[in-house]
Design a protein around this nucleic acid. Sequence first.
RNA 1: GGCUCUAUCGUCUAACGGUUAGGACGAAUCCUUCUCAAGGAUUAAAUCGCGGUUCGAUUCCGCGUAGAGUCACCA
Length: 472
Amino acid sequence: MLNKKVVTRFAPSPTGFMHVGNVRAALYEWLWARKNNGIFILRIEDTDQKREVEGSVEHIVECLKWLGLDYDAGPDKCEPGMCYTQSERLEIYKKYAKILIEKGYAYPDPYTVEELENFRKKAEEEKRPFLYREHRPDNFGTWDGIKALRFKTPEIKSYQWHDAVFGDLSAGPEMLDDFVLIKSDGYPTYNFAHIVDDIEMNINVVMRGQEYIASTPKYLSVYQALGFEPPLYACLPHIMATGGNKKLGKRDGAKDVLDYKKEGYLPDAMVNFLAFLGWNPGGDKEIYTRKELIEAFDLSRIQVSGAQMNLEKLDWMNKEHIKLLSKEEIEKNILEWLPEDMRNSKLVSVILERISKWSDVRDMAQSGELDLFFKAPEIDKVKLVYKNSTAEKTFENLQAVIKALENIDENNFTVEKIKEILMDLANKAESRGEVLHPVRYALSGLDKSPDPFIIASILGKNETLSRLQKVM
RNA sequence: GGCUCUAUCGUCUAACGGUUAGGACGAAUCCUUCUCAAGGAUUAAAUCGCGGUUCGAUUCCGCGUAGAGUCACCA
């Protein structure tokens, strides 16, 4: 890696939406490239036509854009003559395939699908692993481009390699086999295409899920046959579903990352959360800005065991990131998530304390808990009276409150002033609740609500007095 | 089944071979204006088991156990 510009890539296949597992790999690749002033490439691995889902590429691009993981090159961002979509690079794979054929490291597969299936079944019955190379033909025919092209493993041996995350790894010869390079439909397999592309694009750091550890010897043997140096591998531990210990995948209810966008999570919070799911810089600090993450990120501190998603922590982290925003940004967002007829900036502080993500604003409005700020509530006179107090005392207290509030200048009807006046009265009473409860209830009509001072200040002097007088 | 990887509070994790095993989320309790929220304080909560190396093991080694991954003309 010395003196070499770091080039990383995120190489998803367009088979549906992106979930946190995919995105975290992209994030780490991005962080590592940015930290080293390197290059981050987006490459679309669409060699399986059957599994392709329309709109996936746009979805992937939108995800990366939302999270701010800008790539230096990609399908929609490439220099002339370059292409980052595998289905449009078939000639390149063929070129490399021919090199392997010439070197004697590739040959056409003479068997039919049924014959292969039988081999496999037989191996299974004999309770031993199936290895295609045990059926390797003695004489290779010429490749007509229609049959599948297989790799001839150059050397059956044990491979050792270094993984930036898992350390020194090794795997025995049983992992090596004559796998398919080019499928009979003319498309390369992942196993072949990604290596060709990584070579062609000068990728020198490859991060991907740890499920690829097992097949790494295969890739190393292809590099050996081709005569190129393999990149630095950094296998990532799996992210597991909440409450489970299974690798998080679409089938296990992994969520579309754009759903988090829809729920109003901050991209910076998402990035912070994902970065810490399987990595941490050491120390007690947990809230990191994007810039701080880039500075602190380090391959060697990536975790080796899988981590569970903890949505509660994501909510907490999002809240912390909201606090990092400017007053103006917070107000703008809260107002945007409020229905049009509720967009009152006085509500911002009350709402802010009660949300962890923007969609909570919408939910608050929908639940009706903000209605009290827009229309006078229905009052139950029984509930107006505090615990062991009496109706008589309650009205007496309310009368005093009204009188005191009337004396406040309209321009000075602030939380601080109201609080000062009301607390003064409350402290003189037998219990504070005896004064505070009726006021809060008369203003809100709710058992649970924000405190009376903030409500009164939002309502304003006129509305406050009107609601108080109404219950008398 | 073969091969591979992993194992610290419920969860995410920290700890040159030497710490009362630390922090965060969540939980509980208390305080701060009756309630709610926010904030503050406090508490409970972990080194998978057994051996070995060592003066000393969460850390190194072996075995066991448990979990995960992988064995496609999918990526």
